[in-house]
Computed example of a mutant assay.
Amino acid sequence: MQLPVLLVMMLFTNCEKQTDGREYRFSGAITVDGRTRYFLLNLPPGYYEAPGKFPLVIGLHGAAGSGSQFELDYRFTQKANNAKFIAVYPDGVRSEGLLGLRFWNAGYCCNYASEHNINDVKFISELIDKLVRDYKADPKRVYAAGMSNGGMMAYRLACELPDKIAAIAAVSSTMVQTQACNPSRAVPVIHLHSALDTKVPYYGGVGLADYYYPPVDSVLNVWASKNNCTAAPQVIRDDAQYRLTEWPACGNGALMQCYLTKDGGHAWPGGRKSRDKADEPSTVINANDLIWDFFQRFSL
């Protein structure tokens, strides 16, 4: 019993040092609109010695999740350390209920954040500014990856912060934007989903918390139009494991991809179940690898 407990304590300590005695993983906070907003930051090995700047990936948790949950369940810091990028895991605002669940205001979803019109776009914008100013984050290589409600938030960031977000990834998600979406540039998009997802159904419908979720195909077709993709979508692979569709020839060299798996459910492919009754993650693709390979292609 002692070894697992020690491992958990090491993973969740607020300030984590490597053998050189420097801090590489710690918690932080900023004040936005009079509200304290929290985040967890991880710097990759070699950060302090490197002369240049590092890519920054923003990991946006799903409804009722947290930044630390995103990091742990999706094994994202392991990918960040291996690939040498900075990872930041911000927290959504807690609800006022007994459980204090966290949500993002991605439009008409979800819950407390949407109902109270929390300005999460401003929070993420100011968080980016801080990390560019105080750390070696490259402002031209900032990316957003989100799960479920976090993926919805990533779509909103693509709409409203295209000058700061180089590309987005949405997992088990859709777009629930309520304001006009008119990005000033083509934003590369990679979307990962399971055909078996009943919580945010790929083909649209009522799911989690009785919200209606638009079909992902429709969302991607809208983005193809906004991104000035001149060629029709192409099915690159379609077999018993997954279907990969690409929208090539988009404006400014942008690309759009959609992986639709035949296994899994409402979960992060290649990750672990966040709780006993959660859906099984897809095993035919690995979200971390696909997302990072995609992000590396693009910069502002």
Rank of each mutant, 00 (worst) to 15 (best):
residue 4 P to E: 01
residue 11 L to E: 11
residue 13 T to V: 13
residue 17 K to A: 07
residue 32 V to N: 04
residue 36 T to N: 02
residue 36 T to K: 14
residue 44 P to Y: 14
residue 45 P to C: 11
residue 46 G to R: 13
residue 46 G to A: 11
residue 50 A to I: 00
residue 53 K to R: 15
residue 62 G to Q: 06
residue 78 Q to T: 13
residue 79 K to F: 04
residue 89 Y to R: 02
residue 92 G to V: 09
residue 100 G to Y: 00
residue 113 A to K: 03
residue 117 N to S: 07
residue 118 I to S: 00
residue 123 F to Y: 14
residue 135 Y to K: 11
residue 136 K to H: 03
residue 143 Y to Q: 07
residue 146 G to H: 10
residue 155 Y to C: 09
residue 155 Y to K: 04
residue 157 L to T: 04
residue 157 L to G: 04
residue 162 P to W: 00
residue 163 D to S: 08
residue 163 D to V: 06
residue 166 A to M: 08
residue 171 V to C: 01
residue 172 S to Q: 11
residue 173 S to M: 09
residue 174 T to P: 07
residue 177 Q to F: 04
residue 177 Q to I: 13
residue 179 Q to D: 11
residue 183 P to A: 05
residue 188 P to A: 06
residue 194 S to C: 08
residue 197 D to G: 07
residue 202 Y to D: 01
residue 205 G to N: 05
residue 220 L to N: 00
residue 221 N to F: 08
residue 226 K to N: 09
residue 233 P to K: 06
residue 239 D to F: 03
residue 240 A to G: 12
residue 251 G to L: 06
residue 263 D to F: 10
residue 266 H to N: 01
residue 272 R to S: 15
residue 273 K to Q: 15
residue 274 S to L: 11
residue 283 T to K: 14
residue 283 T to R: 13
residue 286 N to Q: 14
residue 286 N to K: 09
residue 286 N to G: 06
residue 291 I to C: 03
residue 295 F to M: 11
residue 298 F to N: 08
residue 298 F to R: 13
